[in-house]
Each structure stands twice: as C-alpha cells, then as structure tokens.
Design a protein around this nucleic acid. Structure first.
Lengths: 356, 356
DNA sequence: TTGAAAGCGCTAACAG
DNA sequence: CTGTTAGCGCTTTCAA
C-alpha cells in the first residue's frame, strides 16, 4: 500500500469518526484510532499504553495519562477479537462439561474459572449434557474461537476430542474420565471406594454384629468410574474374605426412581449399602422412608460423592468427596508444564465422616 | 493497495503455505486462502461455501463439493475471531452468574446455554462469586469479546452494568434481581412465599391445632428477594389476623451454621418454620437432629427453593421451586423482541408438595 | 457463476 | 521516546 492510499483510508476513518463525535448515541465504539486522534498521537502509542506494553516502549507518563483519560471518558473497551487475530495466542482456555446442575461439576466449573483467571486466562465453559454429538460440536466450536487449550471433562469419547485438538495444534487434557491420547487427571475412585466400603463394613459389624456382603447400588457398568469404584468395593470384601454374590451389585443407572424400585424388589433387606452417587442416594432415602422406623435404623450406608443433606442422614457413616481443588490444581500445573504425554494421574479423595 | 503489491502479499502467503504442506505437523491451521489454492479457486468462493452463503452466490455444486472435501481433509476450522471482526455481529451472548455450585444457578446456566444454542448464538457464562468488583470486571471483559447481548444474573449492582452496556451499545437484561435501567425478569417471590406460608400455617393448624406465627429464617434483609419473600410471609399472616413479633424473623445470612445457632438459642421452639433457602435448610436439619425425636416430629417446615433431599424430610410440607425454564423463556423472548424499557416482569413459582 | 480488493481493530517490526 | 506500515483471517461490496 502506498502512502497516499493509506492516507485515503485514514481519511475515511476520520469521516466516520467525526460524524460519531457529533452523535454521542452512535453504537460505534471508539477504537485506538479514535483515541489517537483525540489525544493527538499514534494508534501504536495508544495501543501500547492500553495493553500495558508501554513501559517497554518507554512512553512518557504524560502521554500515557492523556491516553488513559481519553479511554476512560469515551468508554473505550479493547476489541479482543481484533487483538487475538493479530497476536498468536488467544489466552482463552476452553472446557467442555457434562452438566452444571450437579454439585461436583458445579464446583469444577467454579474452580476452573477461578484458576484460569488467576493464571491470566479467559475461561469459556460449554455444557454438553452428556451428549457425544454435542461434545464434539462444542469442541469444534471452542477451537474455532482459537482456544489455547481445551479441557474435556467427563467426555464420552475423549480421544476423539484429543484428535481434533491435535489437528488444530491445541493443547488438551482429560478431566474426570481418562483417555489415551492426552494427559488425564481423575479421582482415585478405587481407593476412595475401598476405604468407604471398609467404613461401612466396620459399622455393620460394630452396630449389628454382622459381616455380610454389602449392597452396591447405582451407576452404569460401562462407566469407567463405576468400574473403578466397584473394584475398590470388591477389594474391601476380598481382604476380609467376604464373598460377593452377583445379586448384590445393582448398576442400572443413576436414576433415583430406578434405585428405589430395585430396593423395594429385594427379598432380603441388606444391612449395609454402598451408594454410588448422590443422585442414587435420593432413591435410597425415598426407600428408607417407606421402611418401618425400627428397620430403617438397622441400616448403614455410605455414598460416593458428597451432599450436605446426605451427610445428615442418620444412616450415613461416610461420604467420599472428590478433591475438586486438587483436581484443578493438577490440571493447571499440567497445562503450565506443557506436558502432553497421555499419562493418567490420580488425585486422592476425602472421606467425610458424619460429625454428629 | 495497488495490484502488484497485492500479488506480493499473496506470494508471501504462498511461501508460508507451501512450506506447511511439506510439514504436516505445523501448528498453522489452514485458512480459506490455503483451501482456495488447494482447490484452485478464490478465497471468496471458499468462504461463501463454508459459511453457507453460497446458495445466494449461486456457486456450482461441483465447486462447493470440492471445497467441502478439501476443508474436511485438512481439518479446517473457521477462525471466528476474524469472522466476528469483519461482520458487525458476534452472535455471542454473555451472562454473568453469581455461582455455579447451586441448584438454582446451575439450572439457569444449563437452560441459558441450551436456549442460546437453539437460537444460533454462542453462550459464554462467567461466574462472579457474588463479588461486585468481579461482576464489573467480568462485564467489561465480555463486552470486549463483542457480545451482542449481556445478561446480569443476580448482580449486586445491575444498573452499573446496564450503564456499561449502554455505553457500548449492547443489549442487556437483568435476571433474578431487578434493576432500573434494563428489562428485569425475576421470580414472583411475593406470591410464592405467601402461598408457602399458607401451606405451613394450614399444616400447623391441621396437625397440632395451633395458629401461632411462624418463624422466618435465612436470607439478608438488604436482599431484594428476601424482602419480597418476607412481604409474602407477612401477608399470609395478616390475612389470618396473626400478629408477627419481630423476634420471629431471623435474617442473618444464609449460612447453615448461623441458622442452627439461632435455632438453638431460641427459648421457645416454634411449630412452623419458613426456611428462606436450601442452604439455610441445612442448618435447620442439623438442628432438628439435635432435638428429641418426639419434639422433632411436632414441627412443620417449608422452604423457598427446591432440593430433592429437603423434599424428603418428614417435616417438609412444601418447597417453592423457581421456574427456571419460564425465566429463560421470557429472557430470550425479550432479547428477540429487542425491547429495552426498564420494566420488571415476574414469573410464577411452582409449589412442590411432598409426594409421600 | 466467480474473483479482486478493501478493511474490520489490533499489534509487532521497524524506522526514526 | 514516538510513528509508520503491514497483515492476522474473514466477509462484503463491486466488477466481470
């Protein structure tokens, strides 16, 4: 572009701008060009003052003040789209998340935002409703927003998302559910479940003198986390040489009503119950209420996942609370380290005992 | 820019691109220029095929197919930043939200995303932790992402955010908490609370034969929604000519422990309790457990807000569930209508009665 | 039915 | 200490 033509562009700009000045209600937002003209300096100077790179450019305090003042007065906000387009990095970090409407994922979302902001990144979360097609579409969409990094939380097929990211040259990481093509960070479901099972077995022996196998209820057998918890559940029985009949393992989904029906249908009521989620616990509580008070008092249960109301149940002997802070601390450490080997890392759970 | 110089630009591009072709692992993502060269057509044609405007341009099916195929094979994703920069609209709709970690706000977040997507918009939610400074900063940040519309949910000072949006020429709307400078949509807290109070009063009269004033617990007196609920609570008493002593209204925040302590400190235990949130309900349940069973059974309570475990409490006679779907349906209708008068619109709540 | 050219607002490289 | 210039990837006239 030759000089005279650049001037022509500037002229066009000025035409637009000066008409805007007359018309305060114009929806046009001021740009660095507008501020530059107002202050009588160049767009570069304005830009560097506004984005903090002006110390490096050793711009005079006086000019900086004038620019800042003009920006303030005119309600200037940077156009990040333009800025991202020009820079190589967006500083956006994306996350896909199955649900918000759930204590565990809700806490993950908050912790993710807090830590992203603390790291100077802009967090964008997309909720994918456990729908594999939506997960993929959302991942693509976040990539088109030029995210620097994408976290798949509880994704149905994390590897497919890892592939998308790899193709786009974007860092990625699996949270809560492991994949084989990116680093994975998840709770130590096995140990948590084993410890919880021990607690329930202890309580049954202490309170009722029985050493029967517990009932495992909730979850889906094809779900990685349920499998791990079941493994811990079985390990705690094996170490005490308690044999486990298949009929004591009910994994027909998380739905409360399903759990209640299964419990109602049992010919022999168990003393100890391992509940695989707080959602399932709702069904268990519903069922407990249908029992005679005396019988209900002769039950002990523990739940994998935490809920404050669940913790207050008289039958409750413990809840496993996943360490959301720990999970996200590790997540951001891995992001920062730039590591991208597909290793799985486990974060220990907390066992919360009743406090009354 | 004169022709020869444009060619020079193209040449530079080609240099870069052809080196990328040799080096498949390059982190450079293909652009419409790359695809255009691959297919042997112009960037314009590629763009219009890819963004669906090609019917209008009457591009041949053959060319379209070639372009689509090339895009597929090269893992092309549009750069939205560039696209938004060029277009006048971003199709991004932003929301600031106090918390995710809460059934009500979690449900709002999900419903918001679902409806935004259905309307062809990209939803971005930012969680502001009930921090006024963060609310403002987040609003500014969303504006810098060129959102077409910004929804302030439960914001401390919605009017300040409305001002920011007005300055940027961006549509805005208050949800859950009203402001005076933008349309506001919120639950009908007054009616919901009045109806719930009636239910609790009825239960106390029916079950215990008493017509004493209820206890109101939870919330903050300076909170708009608490004020409205209190108004409904009082109205239900007034219509039955039950006078209300100040000591029966305890609004010292939502914290469970605070509620428990207040209840412990009461010299006379009430029969009926209006609980102002599920958070407060936790404290009430904790307190109930410290009571002798017989005494606990002689209490009836109702809660404003829904929790499935709360609904299963034997003392529970009703919970008010805010109509999240309704709130967001209206929100998107208002957005679509383009209306921006600062009217407040109320959405009725559901009263959920125990089902056992 | 297609392509050339300009420019959205910003930043980095370079030139003074 | 400050300014000029090019160009990020896209869409939108305008011209053919």
């Amino acid at each position: 572009m030759i000089a005279s033509e650049f001037e022509a562009c500037q002229y066009a700009r000025n035409q637009r701008k000066s008409s805007d000045v007359n018309d305060k209600n114009s929806s046009k937002r001021p740009t660095i060009y507008d501020l530059a003209e107002l202050v009588g300096t160049s767009p570069t100077a304005v830009s560097s003052v506004l984005n903090g790179s002006w110390k490096k450019r050793r711009i005079s305090q006086k000019l900086a003040d004038k620019v800042l003042k003009a920006a303030q007065e005119n309600g200037y906000t940077v156009n990040i789209q333009a800025s991202v387009l020009r820079r190589e990095r967006s500083n956006i970090v994306g996350m896909i998340l199955p649900k918000y409407d759930n204590r565990f994922f809700g806490a993950i979302a908050e912790e993710f935002e807090t830590r992203a902001r603390a790291a100077g990144l802009f967090p964008v979360i997309t909720c994918t409703q456990r729908d594999p097609a939506l997960e993929l579409a959302a991942a693509r969409e976040l990539l088109s927003y030029q995210v620097d990094c994408l976290i798949s939380t509880g994704a149905t097929d994390p590897d497919q998302i890892s592939d998308l990211c790899r193709a786009a040259g974007v860092k990625t990481l699996n949270l809560d559910l492991p994949g084989t093509k990116a680093p994975s960070i998840l709770s130590d479901n096995f140990t948590g479940a084993r410890d919880l099972t021990r607690i329930i077995l202890d309580a049954c022996e202490r309170d009722f003198g029985v050493v029967d196998p517990l009932l495992f209820i909730g979850g889906r057998k094809d779900d990685h986390n349920t499998q791990e918890r079941l493994r811990g559940f079985l390990a705690a029985h094996t170490e005490r040489e308690i044999s486990m009949p298949q009929s004591q393992i009910i994994s027909e989904g998380y739905a409360p009503e399903k759990a209640r029906q299964s419990l109602m249908a049992m010919r022999r009521i168990p003393h100890g119950i391992f509940v695989n989620s707080t959602i399932t616990l709702e069904g268990v509580v519903y069922w407990l209420q249908s029992l005679p008070a005396e019988r209900a008092s002769r039950i002990r249960c523990g739940t994998f996942d935490f809920d404050p109301f669940g913790a207050l149940l008289p039958q409750n002997v413990g809840m496993v609370r996943q360490d959301v802070q720990g999970l996200l601390a590790r997540t951001f450490e891995v992001i920062k380290s730039g590591k991208d080997s597909a290793e799985t890392e486990l974060v220990a759970c907390h066992l919360e005992m009743p406090s009354f």
